[in-house]
């Protein structure tokens, strides 16, 4: 998909909670061997944090980098599967907190781990059509894994916010094109009222993550007439450290182009925030002219692929707010008992 008018990112921000639990600590509690853990540690939302508070933090940093007034933002979309309310939007609270209300579109998106990039697509369309001048897309989660389940080792907390506008000298990276690849695939779900999700092991890898990620990336490249070697960086959804590297191998993209955006070993899988924090980590280090491939993945299932080309404004804007590296080095380690208390796993 290519918008008629060029659209790009003019501001971005991320937020990752300060608390970390090492996966070796989770393995200790459940008596598992810790020789093949999917990530080193994961970020844990504190007792006063949720998807809304993380989204507000990321959004405020994105506005700071964009250098716009919040009341100029015409749309605020929050993509998450960790909604604090079953019915009441996160986006209205976020829009009010950042000062975008009341003349603003606001809605929540849900598509497992790709809700944030789904909001990218909507934002790009709204901006390109001229319906709004600025649109903000946020991907955020405080993911929960059932105690002792494989997902408990990776389900983390964090989020990213991106502001889109028509291409100008303010653009950090413009969108060359996007592609969405979606099927009905039962790899992961959570029923209404259930606290923890279920996952179907045999569907998780090849028919779900890899098929959708690779097909979206290949179709995007075919549509834009690009080859894997045309990209300087590649960012994929990061449910663990192995999947993004394997997807890159399928696409013929070398590891060194993936590693700058690979943050899951330090913060875990931040679900809707995952590929967006990865994109921010790449923007933190990219040079003008670099081309970035971004491919999200959401269970259920689908992938959104984007090609971004970095512009000169990145050099001046990236230092206006904390970089991803600042959040990776800011950490307070907690043990399983504090984690259980923070994440409301102890019945009172």
């Amino acid at each position: 998909m290519r918008p008629d008018d060029d659209v790009g990112i003019i501001g971005y921000g991320v937020y990752v909670p300060v608390y970390r639990i090492r996966t070796a600590e989770i393995a200790r509690v459940w008596g598992k061997l810790n020789d093949d853990l999917p990530v080193e540690e994961k970020a844990v939302a504190g007792p006063d944090e949720d998807a809304v508070t993380i989204a507000i933090e990321a959004a405020r940093y994105a506005i700071r980098r964009a250098g716009i007034r919040p009341d100029e933002i015409g749309a605020v979309y929050v993509g998450t599967e960790s909604k604090p309310y079953a019915v009441k939007p996160c986006s209205t609270i976020v829009a009010e907190a950042i000062g975008a209300t009341p003349n603003v579109l606001a809605a929540d998106y849900e598509f497992a781990c790709k809700a944030g990039t789904e909001a990218f697509q909507a934002s790009i369309g709204l901006v390109a059509s001229g319906m709004v001048e600025y649109a903000m897309a946020i991907g955020v989660d405080t993911a929960q894994g059932r105690p002792a389940d494989a997902l408990e080792y990776t389900a983390g907390s964090g989020g990213g916010a991106f502001i889109f506008a028509k291409k100008s000298h303010e653009t950090i990276a413009y969108v060359e094109g996007s592609y969405s690849f979606v099927t009905d695939t039962p790899d992961f779900w959570r029923r209404d009222g259930d606290r923890y999700p279920y996952h179907m092991g045999r569907f998780t890898g090849e028919p779900a993550y890899f098929r959708h990620t690779v097909m979206a990336a290949k179709s995007l490249m075919a549509e834009l007439g690009l080859r894997p070697s045309d990209f300087d960086y590649a960012v994929f959804h990061q449910p663990n450290c192995k999947f993004p590297l394997k997807a890159a191998r399928y696409l013929g993209i070398p590891e060194e182009k993936v590693k700058p955006g690979l943050v899951c070993s330090m913060i875990g899988n931040t679900y809707s925030g995952s590929s967006m924090i990865g994109l921010a980590a790449v923007l933190d280090v990219a040079k003008p002219g670099d081309r970035i491939l971004l491919v999200s993945y959401g269970s259920g299932a689908g992938s959104d692929a984007f090609s971004f080309v970095v512009q000169d404004a990145i050099e001046e804007k990236r230092d206006r707010a904390p970089k991803v590296s600042a959040f990776l080095s800011r950490r307070k380690e907690i043990d399983y008992s504090m984690y259980a208390k923070f994440r409301n796993k102890i019945l009172m």
Partner: peptide, 15 residues
């Protein structure tokens, strides 16, 4: 901006 402890089950969440 953070949330206050939830005081009532099913009640509003205050930030």
């Amino acid at each position: 901006i953070r949330k206050l402890p939830e005081q009532l089950e099913g009640g509003m969440i205050c930030y």
